[in-house]
Amino acid sequence: MAKRRRSSPDESDEDASYGPSTNPRKKRAPSRRLRPRKDTESADTELEQYSAARSSTHTAAIHRIADTSTLRSLLLNWYDGVHQRRGMPWRKPFDPSLDSDGRAQRAYEVWISEIMLQQTQVATVIPYYNKWMEKYPTIRHLAESDIETVNALWKGLGYYSRAARLLEGAKKAVEELGGRLPDNAKDMEAKIPGIGRYSAGAICSIAYNQCVPVLDGNVHRLLSRVLALHAPPKAKATLDILWSGASAMVEACDRPGDVNQALIELGSTVCKVRDPDCRSCPLAVGCRAHQRQQGTTKEKEKSQIPSNSESVTVTAHEVPDIEDLCTLCEPLPAGCLVTAYPMKTERKKAREELDIVNVVEWRHQDARDRWFLLVKRPEGG
């Protein structure tokens, strides 16, 4: 009797020696029907993760301002309508008719305001500035003063080292520079104590109409969003890109001082840390962070999530050439909101210190006279 040939595991039933199987107990292949999705939250999350991953893959070219003339025009038009709202006494339009002495006086006024505004709100600074200018209307008046008088006038602003540097800078300007602050940012930063790149740029652009940039905390945040730069905020490469963007905004500009003040004002009042008012921002049309947020929202609205679908279908985007990729930015958090820029950093834990204070008091026998020993702290340390 001939033996039947068993079908191999790789052969179908139809290839067996005796034809298709007619065994009624043979199990059918499981149905491939798709189960309805229980919720859409995971689909939203998947889309957000996709958008975040895609946004971290981009060319370095997006971190350069493409059309500075248009953005500058929009910025200045906005600034012309708002620059007097907060009533800053030091904020005046550039006057080309001023002679060298007049411009040096403006430089002194802007210098005082910039140092006072460091880590201090505008509303707090205004009354202090007015009192200061009454007491020391020119740089020579300040140079003739002493640290005790200056500190008494500064009381309440904090960070007294700022007042000391103002006095030191005024004395140096009078003794070595003819009673004037330098008329260019390079010399000002090099020769006046307490003036760094930002302060030199602000003073020289406003008082001397020099086309030099500024980058304070407000402009840092604003340009990080305009350039969609999500990188370690204090890294040299990050700062180089932001300084380049700030420089482009004032390059060959007729009103560099107004451009710089407008950037500061926009970052302070509109492009805020939380709840930025993108609808009223004049730079929204060129802000890549805003465009990305709008694009992510549209992708989410357009994504179709059928009730019988197991996954979200997203459209693949063209990946840029590897040689053009940005290697600085880090992945964005899910959602890709404007407030994701600039990149957040973890705050260092506050250092714990132990301070010991000794109070030396002398009293007369009748207790009417009391004396305390005071020692002036050193200049350093």
Rank of each mutant, 00 (worst) to 15 (best):
V212G: 05
K272H: 07
Q119Y: 04
G201M: 05
T57V: 15
Y108V: 05
R274S: 14
E318G: 04
L263D: 06
D15Q: 14
V312H: 03
C329E: 05
S244Q: 13
G194D: 06
Q304S: 12
I305D: 10
A202L: 12
E41T: 13
D15L: 12
G196N: 07
S100N: 10
C271K: 08
L47N: 04
E41H: 08
R37V: 12
Q105S: 02
R347A: 09
M188I: 05
R72S: 08
G102N: 06
P342V: 01
L177M: 15
G380Q: 15
R279F: 10
F372P: 00
Y198E: 01
S56Q: 14
E189Y: 04
R35K: 11
S17Y: 04
L215E: 00
N218F: 02
A231C: 06
K3L: 10
E11H: 01
A16F: 14
Y159E: 00
K344H: 09
V273D: 13
E310S: 15
R255H: 09
G179T: 06
E301D: 13
L167M: 10
A334C: 14
I322F: 08
S161Q: 10
A262M: 08
R370N: 11
I126P: 06
E114R: 03
I206F: 10
Q294S: 09
G179D: 14
L242G: 02
G217C: 09
R274N: 13
R197E: 02
S97A: 13
S247V: 01
S145V: 09
C271F: 01
G267Y: 01
L332T: 02
R347K: 15
R165Y: 11
P20M: 10
I126E: 05
A284N: 08
V357H: 11
V226S: 03
R288E: 09
A231M: 06
P276M: 03
D324N: 12
I206D: 03
P232W: 04
D366Y: 09
S56K: 12
P378Q: 07
S309R: 02
N151V: 09
L332Y: 08
